[in-house]
Design a protein around this nucleic acid. Sequence first.
DNA 1: TTGAAAGCGCTAACAG
DNA 2: CTGTTAGCGCTTTCAA
Lengths: 331, 331
Amino acid sequence: MASIKDVAIKAQVSTATVSHVINGTRFVAEETKDKVFSAMEELDYRPNRIARSLRSRKSYTIGLLVPLVAEDTSNFFFMSIANGIEQVLKDNGYNLILSNSNEDVDTERDQIRVFNSQFIDGLIIAPVNGEDCNYEKELSGDYPVVFIDRHPAGLNGDMILVDNRQGTHEAVTTLIKRGHEKIGFITGSLGITTSDERLEGYKEALENHQLPIDENYMKEGPATFQQGYQLAKELHEAKVTALFVANNVMTMGAVSYLQEKEVKVPEEMAIIGYDDYDWMKITSPPLSVVRQPAFELGKAAVEQLLKRVEGSQDEPVEIMLDSELILRGSC
Amino acid sequence: MASIKDVAIKAQVSTATVSHVINGTRFVAEETKDKVFSAMEELDYRPNRIARSLRSRKSYTIGLLVPLVAEDTSNFFFMSIANGIEQVLKDNGYNLILSNSNEDVDTERDQIRVFNSQFIDGLIIAPVNGEDCNYEKELSGDYPVVFIDRHPAGLNGDMILVDNRQGTHEAVTTLIKRGHEKIGFITGSLGITTSDERLEGYKEALENHQLPIDENYMKEGPATFQQGYQLAKELHEAKVTALFVANNVMTMGAVSYLQEKEVKVPEEMAIIGYDDYDWMKITSPPLSVVRQPAFELGKAAVEQLLKRVEGSQDEPVEIMLDSELILRGSC
DNA sequence: TTGAAAGCGCTAACAG
DNA sequence: CTGTTAGCGCTTTCAA
């Protein structure tokens, strides 16, 4: 690979001049520029980003840390966010390093440490369930950080979130308005802010309509297909007439149960799930869901991060995006 | 951030010694090691990977370039591969840079150029439809490359592929054995090796059973939900009794059509789709599909790549993974 | 309008 | 068993 020195020699100028031509960082005579450009062309020169990063302390790379669980298809939501982020980043000449915390605090810490010695210009992180993960300490301030999707307890910083309470509230209210009084609630493990907020939204909706909150109608478990299936079973046996499932993986499990038992949807059991994907349209009946704006979330996160990267010292921003209730045939 | 020099001073040794302690590259007395370790601890030292890369020409980063199309949920298949790759890589202390060619030759070339100036140790690429993409030229040999999923015409190199012909052949044969003679075939744009091979598998299965190959039963279009819907409609109107859909996005569209028109599956129309995801289980009836080993593919690709990274000069390898026919209720 | 040269933080040859 | 030191390829200050 040709280096800047080779170009300088071939163009009969100094490396400084070549550098300035490349970066447009000071005036260079047209004539000289031409010489440099043709030298670059001839040598098929491409600047070495690593060297540039070392010197200028800028890598044009940002990190993304998400909590995917091990299964193949576990969580499309974060994949969609990643996809969104990647698109915006490309427009700005940045690269993405993708990393996975496996929804595990220790892995998350390790991954953050990798990033710490990696010269990323910024990090977008969807934090793991926030018990004792010491973000203030690990994220030592060498680069800006934007948190997405989940709000770590007691932390102050840029956050791009989805309004989980509103989304759930709206969905459950709809169920109530359609006459349901026994409404089951299935959620992934509590303690994660998103789950907690969705639960709150559920309770709130019930309270607002003077409906009792029945512990037996609220089921929690790891966010897996099997658990979704199992908890739907339990709620069905508890005679609820409607089901709200607070994440997409468990939604699949729940629907699977209903189909297997040939429970008529929505006559015998209404159901509203979480997250919107094409396949929600092809269950029968098509699923009503709370759609989270994954792409927009990714976009907002990058935009905020890039502001910081460019030096913004504004007050931390907390953006709450609305979800959208999409009504199809299942309720 | 503390540098190796700071550590050296604090530990009262040379930077060389610190470096060797970190990397285990030569013998260092226990006593000295201890001094170095405690200095590192005290300073919260973390090696600067950029500097290390610049010097050692090794980045412990590999690139992945896949052709996702712009939509949110476009192709889970590549997402699954990415997920698989990432997991293996992590075990070996490598990082992943994810990049997207948007299924577009020009974007792909640009992205490769980015990688060329980026010090990746290797690249895994799922090439775009291979007309005039000059891989030999763009991939100038600075790092090893493994191709996955699609085989660029006339190219020689490490390839990890899925046996598309076998998968399709098996599926269509099953349809035939169940008595179907008019079997529709829906595919994404031809010209991509995977699509072409699936078409071949379809034709072969028909030929093997002395069934005519009817052009009217074979429909091609961009791999979108809408096209899947539309082409299923056309084939339904052409009175086929079974449908084979050669990718997951179009499968969703096709199923959507059948549900909307209340076509009974499998009585009025049998259907087999491509790729296996949890949601295939919750259509009614559950979908039979050809399952591609996405995770295994990712794994095999990384393993081959890491061999090359470590200097293997063996003959190019061409691994063909089998797909698996998963029979559920839709045929 | 341009050049010389000092490093960024690290590795590794060479020299003890 | 350990230290000295020359770079990796680039940016940027200082000087002309």
